[in-house]
């Protein structure tokens, strides 16, 4: 099947480039790290406040990570006009979307898993045993964020003022992801039973499914206007 081959090759290319230059992951990581620093200066760190604001801090940091990382994800494609090559490919364009999407989800998840222990470290959290729950939430939220982010990255990378347009388009649309992710994270922090916050995870999953499908379908038009 050409289709799966194309997905595989594009994801392979992104991962290999990333392993070689580490540009994306390191810029995402250090940017988020700085955000954590700023936040730890801006709030008093008594345990109750931390409990209260922590989910928000985590997702603001991850949101910035997404803006930095996903916004750049198609930059490599315009650099040597590779977008044109993609446009001329005799394969469904959705395959290109899925390839880029898989790469982006992986990068985001890697950065998030490295960052989370740092949150625990800097804010003296006591949640390491709940890591699986967090990973699940990070996973579903990241899939949704990357689904939209990959699409908008492809869209804004061909536009003037792309650095401005990317967050302007992405963030309002990603409101449901942030609400769902923050609430689910808060549930885990509070030590709630899974059933108490599982509906947020359901919301995120619904969002993921809808936007992966819609983006997959609509990507055809981004490359083939």
């Amino acid at each position: 099947m050409h289709f799966f081959n194309t997905i595989r090759w594009i994801a392979w290319k992104d991962l290999l480039s990333e392993v070689r230059n580490r540009e994306n992951i390191s810029s995402m990581f250090f940017f988020a790290l700085i955000v954590i620093f700023i936040f730890s200066f801006s709030f008093s760190l008594d345990p109750r406040t931390v409990q209260e604001v922590m989910p928000g801090i985590i997702w603001v940091a991850f949101g910035f990570t997404a803006i930095i990382g996903l916004g750049k994800s198609f930059l490599a494609e315009v650099h040597n006009d590779c977008m044109e090559y993609f446009q001329m490919l005799p394969v469904p364009k959705g395959a290109i979307y899925l390839g880029k999407f898989i790469g982006n989800v992986l990068f985001m998840l890697i950065v998030e898993t490295i960052l989370f222990p740092l949150f625990v470290l800097f804010f003296n959290l006591d949640v390491l045993e709940k890591f699986p729950q967090f990973l699940l939430i990070f996973g579903v939220a990241t899939v949704g964020l990357s689904a939209l982010g990959t699409l908008f990255s492809a869209l804004t990378v061909q536009v003037r003022a792309r650095e401005v347009m990317f967050p302007i388009l992405l963030l309002p649309m990603a409101v449901p992801i942030f609400i769902g992710a923050v609430e689910a994270t808060r549930g885990v922090f509070n030590g709630d039973a899974f059933a108490l916050y599982s509906h947020w995870i359901q919301l995120l999953v619904v969002f993921d499914v809808i936007f992966v499908i819609v983006s997959f379908w609509i990507f055809e038009f981004i490359l083939d206007f």
Partner: peptide, 14 residues
Amino acid sequence: LFLIGHGSYLYDDL
């Protein structure tokens, strides 16, 4: 069809 155009369609790190 194949086009050899102004773009090289290359990735710098490969």
